[in-house]
Computed example of a mutant assay.
Amino acid sequence: MPAFRDMAGFVAVYAGRMDECRVDGERVVPQPGAFYGGWITGDVVGPFKGEPGSAGW
């Protein structure tokens, strides 16, 4: 599909399922919960969906 051509050859991973993931040398923290695949670094500010009590967003 032409709309996804720029993504060809890339791989997506869940940080929480890996032994370790880093962005520019900083170890990332997986987004809380089993559903979301977000990567949290020191530059990202919460609150984060997936934490206890955040299901109603």
Rank of each mutant, 00 (worst) to 15 (best):
V11C: 06
E51Q: 13
V28C: 04
E26R: 10
G56R: 14
G16I: 06
G56P: 02
P30N: 01
P30W: 00
G33A: 03
Q31S: 14
E26Q: 15
I40E: 06
E51F: 10
G46Q: 05
G50V: 01
E51S: 14
R27I: 07
D19V: 08
G33T: 05
G25W: 04
C21V: 15
Y14P: 02
G42S: 15
A34V: 11
P32C: 08
V45H: 11
V13D: 00
E20H: 08
I40A: 07
G56Q: 12
G56D: 15
G25F: 04
E26C: 10
V28R: 02
G53Q: 06
G25S: 05
A15Y: 06
K49H: 11
G9A: 09
V45M: 09
M7K: 15
P47S: 00
E51H: 11
G46M: 04
E51I: 08
V13L: 02
Q31P: 07
P47Q: 00
D43Y: 11
F35L: 13
R22H: 01
Y36D: 12
K49P: 00
R27D: 01
E26Y: 09
K49F: 10
E20I: 10
F10P: 00
P47L: 00
G9C: 08
A3M: 12
R27Y: 02
Y14K: 13
A15H: 07
P52Q: 00
F48R: 00
V11Q: 07
P30A: 01
R27S: 06
A55N: 06
R22Q: 02
K49M: 14
E26A: 12
G53A: 02
F35H: 11
G37T: 05
R22K: 05
K49E: 13
G38V: 02
G50K: 04
G38K: 07
K49L: 13
A8G: 04
F4R: 15
I40V: 15
R22I: 00
P52C: 03
D6C: 10
F35Y: 11
W39S: 05
V29E: 15
F48D: 03
F10H: 12
A34H: 10
F35Q: 10
R17C: 06
M18P: 07
Y14C: 08
F48C: 01
V29H: 13
A8D: 06
E51K: 12
G42I: 06
Q31R: 15
G46Y: 03
V23E: 03
G25L: 03
T41N: 04
T41V: 07
G33D: 03
M18Q: 14
G42H: 12
D24S: 09
M1L: 13
D43I: 05
W39L: 04
E20Q: 13
